[in-house]
Design a binder for these strands. Structure first.
Lengths: 340, 340
DNA sequence: ATTGGCACTCGGAACTAGTGAGTGCCAATC
DNA sequence: GATTGGCACTCACTAGTTCCGAGTGCCAAT
């Protein structure tokens, strides 16, 4: 038995199963692929592949279906990156270049991913914690209220209304704005928080209390990781294509999509845009989603992974195509963020 | 035949069908409801109700199912508002009071609606066009770049980066900030845009060009109704409960949920929080959703409807309960916005 | 190692009762 | 005239049965 052909058979099985969604038999295989051998030979190979755990039979006397392990081997060794069509590249470029702000970039990315892969797309907002402070702005809303606006390098804006313990005159607010920006501008969030601790000391005794309140609010805004968890989902209508096993696979999927925490865990750690994470079936960290695969990658300006984006779909998916698309979108988004 | 009892029969049919999800027959009806008459009598009433188009038989020898017209009559005349349980009221109050900003209020509202009604919830962001300007802030990002931050009475923040045709000194920027706020602060967006037209004239010849650029960007941000169309959806996992007819009803629903424009049309015009809009089956403006009903209402500070929220579910839903919940949530949200 | 032949398996389609909830109608009763 | 018990009838649904064929594993021949 030729090892190389055995792998070719596995590849053929995966490809056929993905496109037809039906267990593939030996006869159909030799017809669709020029394997140059007879069905009997293929059957021998199949038996071996089954022994090794790469494929199974849903029931005796049916064709074979790839196992998670089979898909894994396929992804790792048997598939080559499927280059995107010119039309797809153009679609990505034009759609993303029309984006006006960060929200828009994220929105468009989800839509793009969902349309191109025909799967459910997930995009995480750029992570707060790794970005830097662009500017801090204070706006007086009344004698004892301040609006605090924190602008980050990613284009994200966090705002807080602060109630002051006592009135501050305009001059002090000016001074505070200057001091706050001096301490934080250009800094990473983690560093900025530390530097802020020293700010109140620079003020007169009388003002120190309200300044502390403002500083506290700012630190809180910086460390508020609630917004780290923001993700956007799109293409849920593609779930309808899952067709079979509604309860078994669509319902847990819908439930997962409601829980952002779950989604974040699915996407996993942000990797560099050049590295793709592929999780297949049981490799996914949720048991209910064991018939589901995740293809994800990090993105962010300058190859620094600020956040993650990807797609979720049935294990039975077109891995080469999906992987190419996810990677391409991540790269374009990174480029856009770089320029913005 | 007693007209009043006929209606009681219709009510009973709706209630039973909603809770059991199965066609209801005459015998089962008299057993579950104390109607005080025999099945035969109920059958006569049913025949009459069917003639009048309020109920139908899915097939010859099966029980009856309400038609859209039947639900309509039920909603209009037969149902009384089901008061919320204390626990529900408490849940609404505590969940919404924990909200920190507008985004959070919207998020929590969707979640709340979805959980309490066990349907798909939709909440539209407060409409830009009717809100007023709270503050305009300018932040210099470099000699020829300005960050424009527009803060609205609803708590919404719009931002734009403006490229200036020439450098501006700090003093001019200060002046511009003052002039912009003087012209717009507290104004409705529509009025503010008009007032802004006069701002450039207040500046020296030399500065007029950059000022115009900033004003233009601000007007653009104000009239950018793109964000008017923002809606948030939650509880899609409840679609799994639709159970029957996956393709027939869940798929078009999922598709609709992707299209914000469609959702906005579903929610309809914002009404006062005291008025509920109920659209049943074919009354919904999309043919694909003809097995679906919408319960929606407006919300906003001070009984002024800034936006709409509601739920979408199968025509076969618990109207009294759902209507009570939607109304209650709308009122609480309005109250929160009032205070914020 | 490959191949043709062959007996075997078994899920799914197609068909066939059998069952019972539910109906409509009618004559009798209140 | 409204109500009711009786009764024949309908028809979706279930369970049981048969049948078919794609697909398999094994074996002897090449």
């Amino acid at each position: 038995m030729v090892e190389a052909r055995k792998l070719a058979v596995l590849r053929a099985i995966v490809e056929d199963y993905v496109s037809t969604q039906e267990p593939v038999g030996s006869k159909a295989l030799v017809e669709r692929h020029r394997l140059g051998v007879s069905p009997a030979t293929v059957r021998n190979d199949m038996a071996a592949l089954e022994d090794e755990g790469f494929i199974t039979q849903p029931h005796t006397s049916a064709g074979r279906v790839p196992t998670d392990k089979g898909y894994r081997l396929f992804v790792d060794r048997l598939s080559q990156v499927k280059p995107l069509s010119a039309a797809e590249k153009r679609a990505i470029a034009t759609l993303l270049e029309g984006a006006v702000d960060l929200d828009d970039v994220v929105q468009r990315s989800v839509r793009l991913l969902a349309q191109l892969t025909r799967q459910v797309a997930i995009v995480q907002y750029p992570t707060l914690s790794r970005s830097t402070v662009r500017h801090v702005e204070l706006v007086t809303l009344g004698s004892t209220r301040l609006l605090l606006v924190l602008i980050l390098s990613t284009g994200r804006v966090e705002q807080r209304v602060v109630e002051l313990p006592e009135a501050l005159d305009d001059e002090t607010v000016q001074g505070m704005r200057a001091a706050l920006n001096l301490a934080t501008s250009g800094q990473k969030l983690s560093d900025a928080a530390e530097r802020l601790a020293e700010v109140p000391e620079q003020f007169d005794e009388v003002d120190r209390r309200p300044v502390s309140v403002v500083v506290a609010a700012l630190v809180e805004a910086m460390s508020d990781h609630r917004s780290d968890e923001r993700v956007v989902v799109g293409g849920t209508a593609n779930l309808a294509r899952f067709g079979d096993g509604f309860d078994a696979s669509v319902k847990p999927m819908l439930e997962a999509l409601e829980e952002h925490v779950v989604l974040l865990k699915l996407l996993g750690e942000a990797t560099s845009p050049s590295t793709l994470t592929v999780r297949i079936g049981h490799e996914v960290p949720y048991q209910e989603l064991s018939t589901t695969s995740v293809v994800a990658t990090g993105y962010g300006p300058g190859d620094e992974a600020l956040a993650t984006l990807g797609i979720v779909g049935p294990t039975r998916m077109d891995y080469p195509g999906t992987m190419a698309t996810v990677r391409a979108v991540a790269r374009y988004v990174s480029k856009i963020l770089d320029e913005g």
